[in-house]
Each structure stands twice: as structure tokens, then as C-alpha cells.
Measured scan of single mutants.
Amino acid sequence: YFCHCCSVEIVPRLPDYICPRCESGFIEEL
């Protein structure tokens, strides 16, 4: 997954599918 807020590849935090770095939901499956 790619976080558009951090502009990095991340492993989303489940079950909410949010970025573990910034806690944004603005992520996209690569």
C-alpha cells in the first residue's frame, strides 16, 4: 500500500486500513 500523505509505501494498520505513520486513510493498494 502507498500512503499519499507520507508519500511512502506502508503496511496498513488493520482493520481500519490507515497509515501507521500518519494515521490517514488516504492509502492506495499498489
Score class of each variant (00 low, 15 high):
residue 24 S to V: 12
residue 29 E to N: 08
residue 24 S to C: 07
residue 7 S to A: 10
residue 17 Y to C: 09
residue 13 R to P: 10
residue 12 P to S: 04
residue 12 P to K: 06
residue 7 S to W: 04
residue 8 V to A: 12
residue 5 C to K: 09
residue 1 Y to T: 02
residue 30 L to Q: 13
residue 24 S to F: 08
residue 29 E to M: 04
residue 10 I to K: 11
residue 5 C to F: 08
residue 14 L to S: 08
residue 13 R to W: 07
residue 13 R to V: 05
residue 14 L to I: 02
residue 11 V to P: 06
residue 13 R to E: 15
residue 25 G to Q: 05
residue 24 S to Q: 09
residue 24 S to I: 05
residue 11 V to A: 07
residue 19 C to Y: 00
residue 3 C to G: 00
residue 6 C to G: 05
residue 12 P to N: 04
residue 18 I to M: 11
residue 2 F to H: 12
residue 8 V to W: 11
residue 10 I to N: 08
residue 11 V to S: 12
residue 22 C to L: 00
residue 15 P to C: 01
residue 13 R to H: 11
residue 1 Y to G: 05
residue 10 I to W: 04
residue 19 C to P: 00
residue 15 P to F: 01
residue 25 G to P: 10
residue 27 I to C: 09
residue 7 S to Q: 05
residue 22 C to A: 00
residue 22 C to T: 00
residue 28 E to I: 07
residue 17 Y to M: 15
residue 19 C to R: 00
residue 2 F to K: 07
residue 13 R to F: 06
residue 8 V to K: 09
residue 9 E to K: 10
residue 18 I to R: 13
residue 15 P to Y: 03
residue 2 F to P: 01
residue 9 E to M: 05
residue 10 I to H: 05
residue 18 I to F: 12
residue 9 E to H: 13
residue 1 Y to M: 06
residue 9 E to S: 05
residue 25 G to S: 13
residue 21 R to T: 03
residue 1 Y to N: 14
residue 6 C to T: 02
residue 25 G to E: 10
residue 29 E to W: 03
residue 16 D to A: 09
residue 28 E to R: 03
residue 9 E to F: 04
residue 5 C to A: 12
residue 6 C to K: 04
residue 20 P to V: 02
residue 21 R to H: 05
residue 29 E to Y: 06
residue 7 S to R: 06
residue 10 I to A: 05
residue 7 S to D: 11
residue 16 D to L: 10
residue 17 Y to I: 11
residue 9 E to P: 08
residue 21 R to S: 10
residue 21 R to K: 15
residue 19 C to Q: 01
residue 1 Y to L: 10
residue 9 E to N: 13
residue 7 S to P: 01
residue 20 P to I: 01
residue 16 D to M: 14
residue 21 R to F: 01
residue 14 L to G: 12
residue 30 L to A: 12
residue 4 H to N: 14
residue 4 H to Y: 05
residue 2 F to A: 00
residue 23 E to G: 15
residue 1 Y to R: 02
residue 26 F to N: 15
residue 24 S to Y: 02
residue 20 P to H: 02
residue 24 S to P: 02
residue 13 R to Q: 12
residue 6 C to Q: 05
residue 5 C to L: 07
residue 21 R to M: 04
residue 17 Y to T: 14
residue 29 E to G: 12
residue 25 G to A: 14
residue 30 L to K: 15
residue 5 C to M: 15
residue 22 C to G: 01
residue 12 P to I: 06
residue 14 L to N: 09
residue 2 F to D: 02
residue 4 H to K: 14
residue 12 P to R: 04
residue 4 H to D: 07
residue 4 H to A: 07
residue 5 C to I: 13
residue 6 C to R: 04
residue 29 E to C: 15
residue 23 E to K: 14
residue 21 R to E: 12
residue 20 P to F: 01
residue 24 S to D: 12
residue 6 C to A: 04
residue 2 F to Q: 05
residue 16 D to T: 10
residue 26 F to K: 13
residue 3 C to W: 00
residue 5 C to D: 15
residue 13 R to K: 13
residue 26 F to S: 15
residue 24 S to A: 08
residue 19 C to K: 01
residue 29 E to Q: 09
residue 30 L to M: 08
residue 8 V to H: 13
residue 7 S to M: 09
residue 18 I to S: 12
residue 26 F to C: 06
residue 7 S to G: 08
residue 15 P to T: 07
residue 26 F to Y: 08
residue 11 V to R: 09
residue 3 C to A: 03
residue 15 P to L: 10
residue 8 V to F: 08
residue 21 R to I: 05
residue 24 S to M: 04
residue 8 V to I: 12
residue 14 L to M: 14
residue 28 E to G: 07
residue 15 P to I: 15
residue 14 L to F: 02
residue 14 L to C: 07
residue 22 C to P: 00
residue 12 P to W: 00
residue 1 Y to K: 11
residue 19 C to H: 00
residue 23 E to Q: 06
residue 6 C to N: 03
residue 20 P to L: 03
residue 26 F to P: 15
residue 2 F to R: 08
residue 28 E to F: 03
residue 21 R to L: 05
residue 14 L to Q: 14
residue 12 P to Y: 01
residue 19 C to V: 00
residue 18 I to Q: 11
residue 5 C to Y: 08
residue 8 V to C: 13
residue 7 S to T: 14
residue 14 L to V: 08
residue 28 E to S: 12
residue 17 Y to P: 12
residue 16 D to G: 11
residue 21 R to D: 07
residue 4 H to F: 13
residue 13 R to A: 09
residue 13 R to N: 13
residue 15 P to K: 03
residue 12 P to F: 02
residue 7 S to K: 02
residue 19 C to G: 00
residue 20 P to D: 11
residue 22 C to D: 02
residue 28 E to T: 15
residue 13 R to S: 11
residue 5 C to T: 14
residue 19 C to N: 03
residue 4 H to S: 10
residue 18 I to A: 07
residue 7 S to C: 10
residue 5 C to N: 15
residue 18 I to D: 12
residue 8 V to D: 10
residue 28 E to V: 14
residue 5 C to V: 07
residue 15 P to A: 10
residue 11 V to G: 10
residue 26 F to E: 15
residue 3 C to L: 01
residue 5 C to R: 13
residue 19 C to A: 02
residue 1 Y to V: 09
residue 18 I to H: 11
residue 8 V to Y: 05
residue 15 P to D: 11
residue 20 P to G: 07
residue 17 Y to L: 13
residue 18 I to C: 05
residue 24 S to E: 08
residue 2 F to S: 04
residue 16 D to F: 07
residue 2 F to N: 13
residue 5 C to H: 14
residue 25 G to M: 13
residue 14 L to E: 14
residue 8 V to R: 09
residue 23 E to P: 00
residue 2 F to C: 04
residue 25 G to W: 07
residue 5 C to P: 03
residue 27 I to T: 09
residue 7 S to N: 13
residue 2 F to W: 14
residue 10 I to L: 03
residue 3 C to T: 02
residue 24 S to T: 06
residue 7 S to F: 08
residue 29 E to S: 10
residue 20 P to K: 02
residue 16 D to R: 08
residue 29 E to P: 14
residue 11 V to Y: 10
residue 6 C to D: 04
residue 10 I to Y: 09
residue 15 P to R: 05
residue 10 I to F: 10
residue 9 E to T: 09
residue 11 V to N: 13
residue 13 R to L: 10
residue 2 F to M: 08
residue 15 P to Q: 07
residue 12 P to M: 04
residue 22 C to V: 00
residue 4 H to I: 11
